[in-house]
């Protein structure tokens, strides 16, 4: 399974991206622990973080087959004048902020489990998981191992996937 880096932490990003098709993973970097903080899907906008201090603060990775539409900063502004785009963008922001609001009260294991479940469910028949190499390189392996110990995820052919039984139970 292919995981491809889209933007890099600490680096200036040109324009914005709209997920045209597929799934994108968002990773943030803490002082002690990193987090797979969100699963983005078709219609979501990624790269909004770059306006905070002119460099990317969140890493985005496309997983499996995915397509992105690139928008320059000016094109993004132009789109914001369009009523139908604004409606879709508002819905995307509603989901984003609602998820992040609810995460603030949750343990990191629950957040990772939620995102693994979302990845599994949104990937349809492909039933995507996270490659072990990606999990180790992004530093989310400690929490993933805890989920594995609890039987919530399984390691199958070097890919962490949700334990279907745990999805049914939840």
């Amino acid at each position: 399974m292919n995981v491809e880096r889209i933007t890099s932490f600490g680096v200036r990003i040109d324009g914005m991206y709209i997920v045209a098709n597929g799934i994108v993973l968002g990773v943030i970097y803490g002082f002690e622990t990193n987090r797979l903080f969100r699963i983005f899907s078709t219609g979501d906008i990624i790269g909004l973080d770059k306006y905070y201090c002119n460099i990317g603060l969140i890493d985005y990775f496309g997983i499996g087959d995915f397509e992105l539409d690139n928008l320059s900063d000016d094109e993004f502004k132009e789109k914001l004048k369009d009523k139908s785009f604004c409606k879709l963008f508002s819905e995307s922001l509603k989901e984003l902020f609602s998820e992040l609001s609810s995460f603030s009260k949750e343990d990191e294991q629950i957040i990772l489990y939620y995102n693994m479940k979302k990845l599994y469910q949104m990937s349809g028949s492909k039933r995507l998981g996270l490659p072990k190499k990606f999990v180790e390189e992004t530093g989310i392996d400690r929490v993933m191992t805890e989920l594995q110990t609890q039987g919530k995820v399984l390691l199958d052919k070097d890919v962490y996937i949700i334990n279907r039984q745990s999805v049914t139970e939840n």
Partner: peptide, 30 residues
């Protein structure tokens, strides 16, 4: 609504949105 915001204020809107997005992501999770 968003599409009412004029060109000269859009930059500030996007910046505020970005601050909120980064703030929520980092404060909520780390």
């Amino acid at each position: 609504c968003m599409d009412e915001i004029p060109e000269d204020i859009l930059t500030f809107f996007i910046k505020s949105l970005s601050d909120m997005y980064v703030g929520f992501s980092y404060m909520s999770l780390v």
